[in-house]
Amino acid sequence: MLLYRIPAVLGSHAGYRFHALLSRNGDDPMPEKAGNAMLMPGAFVRHPDRPDWGLGQIQSMIGHRITVNFENAGKVLIDGNVVELVPAEPGRDAAPQS
Rank of each mutant, 00 (worst) to 15 (best):
D93Y: 03
L21I: 06
M61Y: 13
Y16M: 12
I78F: 13
G56H: 07
I66V: 14
H19P: 00
D28F: 07
V76Y: 01
G42E: 13
F70M: 08
P41D: 02
L55N: 05
I78Y: 03
V9A: 14
Y16T: 11
L3P: 01
I62P: 00
R92P: 00
I6S: 00
L21R: 06
A73H: 15
M40D: 02
R17A: 15
V9K: 08
L10A: 13
L3E: 07
V45N: 10
G74I: 11
L22W: 05
T67D: 03
A43P: 02
A73E: 08
I78Q: 01
L3M: 09
A43C: 01
P51A: 15
G74C: 04
K33G: 02
P96V: 14
V83D: 02
S23P: 00
N69H: 15
I78A: 14
A8T: 04
H13M: 10
V76S: 12
G26E: 15
L55I: 05
L2E: 10
P90N: 13
G56Y: 01
Q59W: 09
M1S: 11
P96K: 07
V76H: 06
S98D: 01
V68S: 00
D93M: 12
M61Q: 10
Y4T: 02
G54I: 04
R24S: 14
M61R: 06
E84Q: 11
E32D: 04
I6P: 03
I6T: 03
I66K: 08
M1T: 09
P90Y: 01
V86Y: 05
A14P: 03
G35Y: 00
G35Q: 15
L2C: 03
R5E: 08
G91C: 06
L3I: 05
P90V: 07
P7V: 02
N72S: 14
Y16A: 10
A8F: 11
A34F: 11
P87N: 14
L22N: 10
D49R: 09
M1V: 04
Q57A: 01
G91R: 09
R46D: 10
N36I: 09
L3D: 09
E84P: 00
D93W: 04
P87E: 08
S23D: 12
M38Q: 07
Y16V: 13
V68D: 07
L77I: 11
A37M: 12
G42L: 04
G54C: 08
P7K: 01
I6V: 08
L21T: 15
G11D: 15
W53V: 05
T67P: 00
Q57W: 00
I6W: 04
T67F: 06
P41C: 09
R46Q: 10
L55W: 12
D27T: 10
F18C: 08
V45I: 12
E84A: 06
G63H: 00
D27K: 03
Y4K: 01
R50N: 15
F44R: 09
I66A: 06
I6M: 11
A43D: 13
V76P: 05
H19T: 06
A8W: 15
A88D: 00
A14Q: 06
A20Q: 12
N69L: 09
L10D: 02
R46N: 09
M40K: 11
I78E: 13
A34M: 10
P51I: 05
D93R: 13
